[in-house]
Design a protein around this nucleic acid. Sequence first.
DNA 1: CGAATAGTCAACCATGCGGTTTAATTTCTT
DNA 2: AAGAAATTAAACCGCATGGTTGACTATTCG
Lengths: 132, 132
Amino acid sequence: MVDYSPPSDIINHMVEHSPAILDSVFRALSDSTRRAMLRQLADGERSIGALAEPFDMSFAGASKHVKVLEQAGLVRRRVAGRIHYCQLEAARLAEAEAWLRYYERFWSTRLDTLDALLRAEDEEKAKTEKGK
Amino acid sequence: MVDYSPPSDIINHMVEHSPAILDSVFRALSDSTRRAMLRQLADGERSIGALAEPFDMSFAGASKHVKVLEQAGLVRRRVAGRIHYCQLEAARLAEAEAWLRYYERFWSTRLDTLDALLRAEDEEKAKTEKGK
DNA sequence: CGAATAGTCAACCATGCGGTTTAATTTCTT
DNA sequence: AAGAAATTAAACCGCATGGTTGACTATTCG
């Protein structure tokens, strides 16, 4: 059985990776407006205007939120004419999750239920979200 | 096969739970000093002083960080005489992780490798960390 | 061309943050 | 009882934040 485990400096890199990146990712996630934007983006590409619409907030305000998400690497922007389309970017969220997951091991693990619960909702969500 | 899947309002509760709580948790995690403190706490209870020690920072400064962690529900405090002992509190980290995990499904899933990688390091870490 | 649309930029405001210092409180030690 | 130790509290500083408004740029539509 070959040892596929990575050198521990890679692990260390992931656990206290580039602190600045984790800083910006967690910071970006610490605002419920931005989290809601990410949730919208989970359903696919959205223009800035479309992202702004659900919130009682100026266009410029939304634009600033998107910039925060973008600078944290959570969102990629594709400019098409005068419209800026935003897309979820997985990698950075994955880093944040990796950080959390690392610590999961140290706590008691009642988290598994929670996890299962979310995964169970998988198909169901996919269905119900269709008619939005 | 019985349906164990929870009503979707529970899921909703978990995905955009109490926004204020997720706000405070992610905010607390957005500072590398506080993340380092949590990492210390992953090895067990620590006094405020012990938590402050690795950082070139005043006692009061560290105390404020701990308060942020505490108010986010990430840390519990046990006062014994003049010493305040801090302990990792799993639940809130779990909520944050649940939020992230929910979105994981929407991205591509190269994250599994990352996960496996961290879990592989499991025993190894336990060994090497002994001589600290 | 001219007007509407999508978005940014800059200035501004109030608030909060990370950090300090100094003072106060409580507990342990002697 | 006196003093040291562990910690909080309060006041303060500089800077970032979330939000606004108003002016500006670029693109599309008629």
